Simulated scan of single mutants.
Amino acid sequence: MDVLSDVVAVTRTGRPRSAHVRWHAPWGQQFAAVPGSAGFQIILQGSCWLLPPDAEPVQLDTGDVVFLPHGSGHTLADTPETLLTAPDCAPDEGQQPYSTYALDTVDRSGGGGPVTVVLCGAYELDPSRTHPLLRTLPDLIHLPAHPGRRPELRSAVELLAAELESPRLGTDAVVPALLDTLLLYILRIWFDEQPSQANTRGWAAALNDPPVTAALHAIHRDPAAPWTVAGLAEEAGLSRAPFARRFAMLVGQPPLGYLTWWRMTTAARLLRTSDVPLRSIAAQVGYTSEFAFAHAFKRTHGTAPGTYRRTEPSLLSKA
C-alpha cells in the first residue's frame, strides 16, 4: 500500500458517520470539540459561515469543503451574528447532526429564510496510533470550490449526498466506503497543493519529495523486508549519507527509526484486529524471532504483545 492509504487504514477505527442536513435561516449549530475524531463540513447548497473559536470567521459557499483533522470545536451559522441575535437557533450542547450516520435528510428549521444544505460528518480515530502525518495537519483545512478543479472530490461528494438523500439497497455498505474515499481525496488534495519550497520540512514536503516518497512507499509496501539505510537509499536513488539526512530532515526521524515505528504500529493493529499467533505477526513486521519482536514491541508500546492484545480494546467488531 502507499503511505497515505496506510495512514488512514491504521489510524481510522469504527464506522464513519455523516448526515445530509437542511438548514433554514436564521440558524446556527455549535459543534463541540471531539478528541479522537476528525470532522468535515461540505456545503451542497447555499452559503454560511464557519466560526472557529480562536480565528476569524470563514465564509463558505456552495461546493466548499472544510476538514477538521483534530476534531476541533466550531460553529456553523447563516451569518456571523446569528448566534448573538438568535441563540435559540443552537441545539443543546452535544446534539451533533452526525451523532449517527443518517439515511435521510435532517431538516433543522430555524426560520423562513434562505436554505443551506450541508453534508457533515466525522471519522473516529485511534489517538494511540495517530500517524505523525496527521498530527502535522492544521486545525482547519478549507478547500474552496473551483469549477473544473478537483473532479474526483466533487464526484465523491455527489455520490455520498445522493446515497444519504435517497437511500436504496446497499446504502449501508456504500456510505462508509464513500466516506473513506472522501477522506483520502481531501488529504490527497491538501498535500498535493502545498507549495514546494527550498528548506521546507514536514510531511507535506516529504510526500512531495520523490526520493523520500520512494523510500516511504518501499517501507509501507513491504515492512517485513530486511531494510537497511543503504537499501532504502537505493530505492530513493540517492547515496546513503545524503538520503539519510534528507529523510530525517523531512520525516522528522531517521529512516530505520521510522521503519521500526511503522512495524510496531502495524503490529499493534494486527494484535487488535486479528487472532493470528504472535509468531505470525512477528514475521509480518520483519522479525524472525518472536523474542526479538516482543522486546521491540515492549520498548515501543510499554507492554508485551500478549498483554497488549488482552488489555487493549479489540477492533475485530469495528474493522
Rank of each mutant, 00 (worst) to 15 (best):
residue 231 G to D: 11
residue 116 T to I: 06
residue 78 D to S: 05
residue 130 T to C: 13
residue 281 I to H: 00
residue 142 H to R: 01
residue 237 G to L: 05
residue 290 E to A: 12
residue 281 I to R: 02
residue 305 P to Y: 04
residue 192 D to T: 08
residue 268 A to V: 04
residue 133 L to R: 01
residue 122 A to E: 09
residue 23 W to C: 15
residue 14 G to T: 09
residue 57 P to H: 01
residue 252 G to Y: 01
residue 153 L to Q: 07
residue 142 H to L: 03
residue 224 A to H: 11
residue 314 S to M: 05
residue 158 E to Q: 12
residue 123 Y to M: 03
residue 105 T to Y: 07
residue 268 A to I: 15
residue 225 A to L: 08
residue 277 P to H: 06
residue 295 H to I: 14
residue 273 T to K: 11
residue 161 A to H: 03
residue 103 L to I: 07
residue 241 A to R: 13
residue 258 Y to S: 04
residue 218 A to S: 06
residue 156 A to R: 01
residue 300 T to S: 12
residue 232 L to T: 01
residue 119 L to F: 09
residue 42 I to Q: 03
residue 167 P to K: 10
residue 307 T to Q: 09
residue 146 H to P: 04
residue 225 A to V: 02
residue 317 S to H: 15
residue 96 Q to F: 13
residue 74 H to M: 00
residue 50 L to P: 08
residue 39 G to M: 12
residue 76 L to Y: 04
residue 198 A to G: 14
residue 231 G to L: 10
residue 138 P to F: 06
residue 319 A to F: 11
residue 49 W to Y: 08
residue 280 S to M: 01
residue 58 V to H: 12
residue 162 A to R: 02
residue 69 P to I: 12
residue 83 L to E: 03
residue 280 S to I: 10
residue 253 Q to L: 02
residue 24 H to L: 15
residue 313 P to A: 08
residue 158 E to P: 11
residue 41 Q to D: 02
residue 266 T to S: 12
residue 250 L to N: 08
residue 240 R to P: 07
residue 316 L to P: 11
residue 84 L to Y: 11
residue 194 Q to L: 04
residue 311 T to C: 05
residue 164 L to C: 06
residue 147 P to N: 01
residue 183 L to E: 09
residue 310 R to P: 13
residue 217 H to M: 10
residue 286 G to H: 14
residue 180 D to Q: 07
residue 293 F to Q: 10
residue 181 T to R: 08
residue 263 R to Q: 02
residue 208 N to G: 15
residue 46 G to K: 01
residue 60 L to W: 02
residue 50 L to H: 05
residue 105 T to I: 06
residue 38 A to W: 03
residue 137 L to D: 10
residue 82 T to W: 03
residue 13 T to S: 09
residue 71 G to P: 11
residue 35 P to Y: 04
residue 97 P to E: 01
residue 84 L to G: 08
residue 146 H to G: 12
residue 297 F to G: 00
residue 70 H to M: 05
residue 62 T to D: 09
residue 66 V to D: 00
residue 309 R to C: 09
residue 49 W to K: 08
residue 273 T to H: 13
residue 183 L to Y: 15
residue 158 E to S: 12
residue 312 E to K: 10
residue 63 G to N: 02
residue 140 L to N: 06
residue 47 S to A: 02
residue 244 A to I: 02
residue 71 G to C: 13
residue 133 L to T: 09
residue 319 A to P: 12
residue 71 G to F: 08
residue 55 A to M: 07
residue 91 P to G: 14
residue 287 Y to S: 15
residue 230 A to Q: 13
